[in-house]
Nucleic acid binder design. Structure first.
Lengths: 125, 125
DNA sequence: TATATTGTACTAGTTTTATAGTACAATATT
DNA sequence: AATATTGTACTATAAAACTAGTACAATATA
């Protein structure tokens, strides 16, 4: 469960602020797998924005395989598909890590830097 | 030295395509530290776009501390600035790690999986 | 010091994005 | 089956982003 907050002065679109908070919620463990998110209307009222703005955030996360949605029922944190062929999974992991280290390098971080930082995440869980 | 190519159909702004190619060029080693980039006019002519579009790419990379520019002289690959305020660097590293652990999570990988994969990269170097 | 070369600033036009309003469709519940 | 609840689709509008044209400013060089 997340306490959503929007900052109109942040210069970051509302729908993106929502996306970021959901993602961070998942990584930090405050949002569990299978947990239902607020309804588009519910969150829209809470944040005093249009329901389509919430919907847009949810849809983008659905495309990214983070959320799953069922009309009439609600939107949920997706159980991840761990049943892909192993080769495919390894390929995907490599892709993610390649992309990851490329970006990190461009900011002057080493792989060691990253590993140290990532380990902090595991310690928390 | 990079062979720049633009894809007008990619749906990615020209200036961003340029940014990506420069970043990748640096990470891949085709662009060395201190090397001069094409002039804004030169690259604009080569790519048949306006010089301001090239300038925009260079400026964003300057903000990101990837490039360094001197009016009348040119634009160069910056030595990576490891002297940024430590807090800022740590924040950036956290952002990068958050983003990627989220993606990895959405594909069913744990942070441990990533660390193991990343370590293979360090072994290679 | 004149001129060429390099990046910058300002402006304008077009396209894309972000948000909202409102009507619709699917599912759950009574 | 009727109704409530949930997400979706379509439209409109304002703001932001993208690109270009053109004039300016700083530096290098002849």
């Amino acid at each position: 469960m997340i306490n959503f907050v929007l900052d109109p002065k942040a210069g970051i679109p509302f729908y993106r602020q929502i996306i970021d908070q959901i993602k961070y919620g998942i990584v930090s463990g405050r949002l569990k797998i299978g947990e239902q998110l607020p309804t588009v209307r519910g969150l829209a009222v809470e944040l005093k924005i249009n329901l389509n703005t919430v919907s847009k955030a949810y849809k983008e996360l659905e495309i990214q395989n983070v959320l799953e949605t069922q009309q009439g029922t609600g939107t949920f944190v997706n159980k991840v598909d761990v049943n892909l062929p192993k080769k495919e999974r390894m390929k995907k992991l490599q892709d993610i890590c390649n992309e990851f280290s490329t970006i990190a390098f461009s900011y002057g971080f080493s792989i060691q830097d990253i590993i140290v930082e990532l380990k902090k995440h595991t310690d928390e869980n």
